[in-house]
Design a protein around this nucleic acid. Structure first.
Length: 106
DNA sequence: CGAATGACCAAGC
DNA sequence: GGCTTGGCCATTC
């Protein structure tokens, strides 16, 4: 696959500084697809290993991953290592967007 | 091409 | 941030 769409998504995700997180909708908007948030999630589902996909979460700061190889626990662990506050609740992991949401792209 | 799918989002209850 | 409904977009069958 050599679509520019992937490249842009990956480049943008790689651009997220450590200790920060971004939302799917935010990235989608940055790509010129304010409504294409689902594509971002799809793109990350096939993202290469050099992409910090764990810094990308949904609008509520909740990790709604359903990946077979990785897991919410894995992502929460990575985020915690970067100094991000992750809270576990009812088997789901949440990130404090007010403190860690990346605004450098706006 | 049409229908189904998915790591979403906003609005309504 | 708890569940449902409708709408988005690209990819896949």
């Amino acid at each position: 696959m050599d679509n520019d769409l992937y490249q842009q998504i990956y480049l943008l995700v790689k651009k997220i500084p450590q200790g920060r997180v971004a939302t799917y909708g935010q990235i989608a908007a940055a790509l010129g697809k304010p409504q294409g948030s689902r594509l971002v999630g799809w793109a990350l589902s096939v993202c290469p290993n050099d992409v910090p996909w764990h810094r990308v979460i949904n609008r509520k700061g909740m990790i709604s991953i359903t990946n077979r190889n990785l897991s919410k626990q894995e992502q929460a662990n990575l985020l915690t290592q970067e100094g991000i506050t992750v809270t576990e609740k009812a088997g789901n992991f949440w990130v404090d967007l007010d403190k860690h949401l990346w605004l450098g792209n706006l």
